[in-house]
Each structure stands twice: as C-alpha cells, then as structure tokens.
Design a protein around this nucleic acid. Sequence first.
RNA 1: GGGGCUGUAGCUCAGCUGGAUAGAGCAACAGAUUUCUAAUCUGUAGGUCCAGGGUUCGAAUCCCUGCAGCCCCA
Length: 566
Amino acid sequence: MNQKIRETLEKGITQSLTTLNKSLSWDLEAFPEVSLELPKDSKHGDVSSNIAMVLAKKVKKPPREVAQSFIDAFEKGGIFPENFVQKAEIAGPGFVNFYLAEHLLYEELLDVLQQGDQYGRSSVRKKESIHLEFVSANPTGPLNVVSARAAAVGDTLARIFDAVGYNVHKEFYINDAGRQVRLLGQSVEARYQELLGKTVAFPEEGYHGEYIVGIAEQLKEKYGEEPLTWSQEDREQRFGQEAIDLNLAGQQATLKNYRVEYDTWFSEKEMREHKDNPLEKVKEQLIDWNTTYEKEGALWFSSTQFGDDKDRVLVTKEGQPTYFFADVAYHKDKVSRGYSKMIVLMGPDHHGYTPRVLAAMEGMGYKRDKFEFRLVQQVNLLKNGESVKMSKRAGKLVEMKDLLEEVPVDAARYFFVLRKLDSPLDFDIDLAKEQSSNNPVYYVQYAHARIVSIFAKYQEETGESFPLDWAKVDLNCLKEKEEVDLIKLLVNFPTMLEGAAEAREPLRVPNYLKELCATFHSFYTKHRVRVDEKELREARLALIEATRMVIHNGLALLGVSSPNKM
RNA sequence: GGGGCUGUAGCUCAGCUGGAUAGAGCAACAGAUUUCUAAUCUGUAGGUCCAGGGUUCGAAUCCCUGCAGCCCCA
C-alpha cells in the first residue's frame, strides 16, 4: 500500500464517518485513529481496518453492526470511483476489509520499474537531520567483534535513514585524551624497553595485548635507540600519541574494508585543546544553572535532581576533568550543530551511562527527547559449535580484523544485522563461511544471480537489449497466485523501510528480503519466464526485473553486494 | 543489594508497535529436473508463546508479581 492509496482510503473513511456521525446521531467530537493494515491472509482483502471495533464501544453498538453501517455509507457515499475500491466487506469480529481495484497493483509494479534503484527512497523528511554515533571504540587497541556488530548495525541504520529521507551524519568519537592515553604510552614504553633487552616493571593497569608489542616494534624500527635519550615522561607521552595514531589508523582501515564510511571523526583531544575551551563553557553553563557544588576539593554535578541515582564528579580534586565531563561537552557540541535527533549506539558495558548524560543535557536546558541511547548487546562467537571466549584483560581478544579474514564482508555484515539490537547475538563463524543453502546471505544473493542469469539467457537467444520500455508492457496479465504474491511484497518495500527506520530495527530488511526471495523462488519453480507468448513473457520479465531491483536495493542498504553470478 | 536485557517448535530465531487459524530456517520424514542456476521448490510432523494475575471487543505483544538465564554497577 503506497502513500497515495493510504491517503485516499483515509480520506474516504473520514468522509463516511462524518456522514454517519450525523445520520445516526453518534455525536462524536472526534473519530478514533484509523488503523489500516495489510492482512497476512489474502482472504482478508488488500487492506484491513479495525475502525468498526474501535467505534463499537463509543457508539454502544455491536462491532459488526457498526461495520455494516460504515460499509453502507462508504459505498453510497460515491466517494470512490469504481476503479479504486472494488468492495468492502465485514469479516471476523468486525473487521472491514477493502478489496482494491486490480489495476492499482500493476501501476505500483510499474512504479518499481521506473524508479529502479531509487525505489524505496523518499524525500518526505528532508528537513530532519539525524546524528548517528556508533562504534566509538577506544583507540587504545584494535576493534573487536562487538565493534563489528555495532558498525554493521550503525551503518545499515544510517543507510536506512538516508533512504527514508533523513539527513544523516555519521560520527566516530575518539577517546584520545586522558588517563588511558598515558597508560597506553606507559605500556608501549615498557614493551619498547623489553625489546631492547631491559627489564622493566610493566604498568599495573597497563594494556597487556600482544598488539602493544607490535606497536613497540614499529617504534623501535622508526626511532631505533634514540628515545633512550629522551626523558621517561617524553617517551611515554610521545609513544602514547604514536600508539593512538597507529591504532586509529588500523581501526579506520578495518572499517573502510567493512564498507563503513564516517562523515566525521571527532577527536576528544582536539575538543579539549580547542581555543574556545568548550569544557570551560560547559562548566560555566552548569554553574550558572545551579547544578554543581564542590565537595572534598572536587567539582560535582548534581545529576540526582535530574533522575540519576547519584551525583557525578566533573573535575577531580587533582584538577583533572573526568570522562563524563568530556562526554557532556561532546554532547553539547552535537547539540550546537543543530540536529533534530541524536542517536548513540553504545556497547553493552556502557549501560548505566545514559541517565547521567541525559541529566547533564537537561541540566543545561536541552530536551531529553532529542537524544536516543541504544544498547547494542554482546556478541557470542561460535566455532565448531563452541563459544570462543574473549577477554580483554588477558589480552586475548578476538579482533574484528581477524574475523574479517575468515568471514567475507557480505556474510559478516548480514549476520550482524540479523538480530534485534538488544538481544545478544550468536555469530556462527562456520555457518557464515559456509557456501551453502544453510547460509542466509547466499539464499538472497542466489535469487539475484538467478534473475540476472535469466536475462543473460534471454539476451543471448534473442539479441534484445534491456531495459525494455516497461510502460509499454501489459502487466495486467500477471494473474497467477505466485505473481500476485510477489507484486504485493515488492510494493510493500517502502512501507517496510519506513517501519525499520522508525523502530530503529535494521533486522527488518534481511527478514523482508528472505521472504521476498522465498516468494520469488517459489514463483520461479512453478512458472517459466521465457514463455512463447510475447505478452506474458514481457510481463514476467518486468516482474523479475522489479524483483531484482528490490533485492538489489535491499542488499545495498545492508552494505552487501548483489552478485550476477554464483 | 540496585539496574538492564532475554524467555515462542528438538535447535537458532521472526512475529510489521494490540488483531482473524502464532510463522520461517535447521534437524526428521516423504516427494519434485527432457525446461531460465537444485545454493531451489512442494508436502508431513512438531506449540502450556516461562508461570500466575490484570487491562478490553481481542494479549505472544501492554501493566503488575514471581521464576530462570545472561550482562552491567557497587
């Protein structure tokens, strides 16, 4: 059901209700909200409405009686030309089911063909902008598999938002300042000393990962023994910065390879060192609004008055700004850039962090509902049916890069989007690698390749070129059940996308694609495209081209390729 | 101790924001190629939607209570 059909129906319903309201003296001041949905079962018509059931109580009549009055008014109203709604009937407890004129479906199919790779895109929300922050992993090490999930989900979500018409800004926040950078510098420095054969104490809370040794080796390569002439502090600081740069470059390369491109990489360090001193501004603003106090030498933000369960330190007694403080400044920066919505995808360990940031935003006079914090749950890697444990402490983490060396990007991205954000996800490495029917990615890609191959064969035999002028093809001859089912699914693509965007559920895209491809495969098995009869042949070519297009558009949203051959 | 998430077929999960007879895939069983790709399709079997209560025309879906699992914070 496209927008035009929905609007026309809604208009007709409202007009019928207005008539009834007078003639039956219902005396309603306002009509309840009409819900129009696509029934699961085609026996229930093309569009189903619960209008009678919602009205029943208000007008104190049984639902089926209300439905009958409604249908009478609707049909007598002469609101619709006969070629819009064929009939409306009562069903079950009081549903009103509309049967739309057949030609509408074929017009929508033509629409799919004419819009091609633009089909599903909308410009309704042109003025609304969304800021989407995702991954934002610490630059103290390589990306892990949770980042891989967040990256797939975030990037897909961004593509969906873009498609339904939002102005999307993708950002990666780099925590390249503060204590962890010092720790990183100390860790690298210690490994560097070890490489030169010296025995040093490894910093207590340092980073133990093997990649630290790798960084130390690179630095040894670059500087030789020269750093030994620097002061200990200089070494730690410079090594820390170099390590951050190396890690960040590594993360960027991994993400690029994963087809994720950010609009901006926002550096915490640059923000802190900015001449406008944003942190100081935040402090002044919070003090102005009387939301801070000093205790034991530290500066506190009284976040409890905004619903947090305890107050938070902004500046420690040593005069160091906390991470929280920097985050508040960062979010304020986002606000100043004027987005209508700011969404953050957080890792599972950051839950509990939301209330304090929201508190701070409210404390500065910003509206809470401009922000959305969403948790992306953990990833459980499975190999040979057993879970591969990750432990950052022991330095044994499964790197995103390693995963991508084993599993193709197409499969990885597809798998990571296959669950709701807040459910933990089991990632079966063996299944993702498997080139078989068990693998859901191939199921969808295969349908695409199959269609392309029909066209290839057709072209080879007839020498005709594509695309045909679809507007000249008689689509009305697509009457078989499988054909109609397929068309109905195809034209539901835009609605599905809207839903996915509003619910922030990228998983609806792969689910839709699976259903679409199942319907296509079913059609393919039962009917031939290259039949002798010209009219039917061209109509079917149109149908599968539309299918191919929608599969392609759907896969593109997931950042997955649509192969022509498999 | 506080908080978050999850609980649907033997397994992994959907269920379009409250609709009609709860659906897929895998596994099991029985079938389908003289034909455009069998990485496919058709059928059979499989259910106390964790339990109990509430809200209403109507609940897997919303609200309480409890149970179980995973994870954060202290």
